[in-house]
């Protein structure tokens, strides 16, 4: 099992603190994309999926679930907030608001 320290001596093995963190994404019945719903700990990928099913889809929320190791996610930091996101703040013309969109076109 990944994240588990196997000791051949058979001594006590601390597993509790070593289960890696996973992020869980669920696609709802009406959703087109997977949405982050929370985190969990699991000893490996297969168990993470089992836990994700039990923790985050037990109220009939989903049709698909992803679990990904948190340390596999590349994430922007708070310090990068302005250089990353402020430049798009004044470019309203990037929104396609100048088109007429028919009422029956979904998911715009």
């Amino acid at each position: 099992m990944s994240g588990t320290d196997r000791t051949s001596a058979g001594g006590p093995v601390r597993i509790r603190d070593e289960w890696p963190l996973y992020e869980v994404f669920v696609r709802g019945k009406r959703g087109l994309n997977h949405v982050h719903v929370g985190s969990l700990r699991a000893p490996d990928d297969a168990m993470a999926l089992v836990h994700a099913r039990d923790l985050y889809t037990r109220r009939n929320e989903g049709v698909s679930v992803w679990a990904v190791r948190s340390d596999s996610i590349a994430a922007s930091t708070l310090a990068e907030k302005d250089p990353f996101f402020a430049p798009s703040g004044d470019k309203v013309y990037r929104h396609p608001t100048f088109y007429d969109i028919p009422d029956d076109v979904p998911h715009i």
Partner: peptide, 20 residues
């Protein structure tokens, strides 16, 4: 089917885990 799956993955992990 899910109960069997859950119990089976844990059975395999206990068998293939630590000596204890």
């Amino acid at each position: 089917s899910y109960h069997c799956h859950y119990a089976a993955v844990w059975t395999v992990r206990l068998g293939d885990g630590t000596p204890e």
